[in-house]
């Protein structure tokens, strides 16, 4: 009825009715379990967790059950469901409503992790996720809800596990996820007049990762900056960096591989403190410039 905490399901209740579109009690374990049980028996449910932070209360069903049923039962069970959840900071929601916990799920085989960075991608990736026969963790950045972009009316799909070159450039590869793709694009616009062309790669699906376009981009530019909002320690950037270091791109590196990510701290309430907790456009501009100029 409420349309979810951010209105992402607004109108669905009126369109599809109370049988298919259900309000749930605030019972995150049961929401995830209900998705799994329905998926195991022939449905393709889509669940929503109000804030990604609250998925901590669903972890058992996702990590110990949904991710493993297919493998554990010899490939005979299938759990095709999507669990949507808004993550990220920037709304003044403080420490318990602002986290980016995607890498916890990247660490779990059997789950797919998808993070759209634009309105166009959100639709195509969501439809592909619904079609997918695996459980998909679909992480939406709250600030991206306010962005606008062209979204075709037809039902197009963007295949999962396909990294996307968002912008071509010769000088520095920026691997960015979710809202950091938008910030990297803004940074690219600032750097272009200086003659610095950054290439932006958006993995879109964090797991299973399509590594090849990242490696190829780094081979081309020789310099790489990885940007995400989640806390830097144990973050997805570490995985990207180690993939690059273990790949054919290693020999082409002209500079240390750099990471920009959330500081190792909870998200503060105060607007200024919150702003300085996670990477902003100017941080990306500065880091990319230093890489391009060989100052690090």
């Amino acid at each position: 009825m409420y349309g979810g905490a951010f209105g992402v399901s607004a109108g669905l209740y009126d369109q599809f009715g109370a049988e298919r579109v259900r309000d749930t009690p605030i019972s995150e374990a049961a929401i995830a379990g209900a998705c799994l049980g329905a998926a195991l028996t022939g449905m393709r449910p889509i669940g929503e967790i109000q804030f990604m932070d609250f998925v901590t209360l669903s972890m058992e069903q996702l990590v110990l059950q949904a991710s493993k049923v297919r493998f554990m039962f010899g490939g005979k069970a299938s759990a095709p469901f999507v669990l949507r959840m808004p993550g990220g900071s920037g709304t003044g929601a403080a420490a318990q409503h602002s986290q980016s916990l995607e890498n916890w799920f990247v660490h779990v085989p059997g789950l797919k992790v998808v993070m759209p960075s634009s309105a166009y991608d959100a639709k195509g990736l969501l439809l592909a996720s619904i079609d997918d026969d695996n459980p998909v963790i679909f992480v939406e950045h709250k600030l991206l809800y306010k962005t606008k972009g062209h979204v075709p009316a037809e039902m197009y799909r963007i295949p999962l596990s396909q990294s996307h070159i968002v912008r071509q450039g010769r000088d520095v590869t920026v691997v960015a996820t979710s809202i950091m793709v938008q910030r990297a694009l803004a940074a690219a616009d600032e750097l272009a007049p200086e003659g610095i062309e950054i290439e932006i790669v958006d993995p879109r699906t964090l797991s299973p990762l399509d590594e090849e376009p990242i490696v190829e981009s780094v081979i081309k530019t020789g310099r790489v900056l990885v940007v995400h909002e989640a806390v830097i320690t144990g973050g997805f950037g570490g995985e990207i960096v180690s993939r690059i270091a273990s790949s054919a791109a290693f020999d082409y590196l002209d500079a240390p591989v750099r990471r920009l990510a959330g500081r190792h701290m909870p998200i503060p309430y105060n607007r200024t403190l919150e702003y300085h907790t996670v990477p902003q456009v100017e941080n990306i501009v500065e880091e990319a410039r230093r890489l391009a100029q060989g100052v690090y």
Binding site: G33, A34, L36, G37, T41, M43, P45, L64
Partner: peptide, 23 residues
């Protein structure tokens, strides 16, 4: 749909199965 190594692990799956039956 399986035995379960987690105490109460299968219990929240059951409403999902029930919902699927109903739908």
């Amino acid at each position: 749909l399986g035995a379960n190594g987690i105490v109460a692990g299968g219990v929240p799956i059951a409403p999902g199965v029930g919902l699927s039956i109903k739908l």
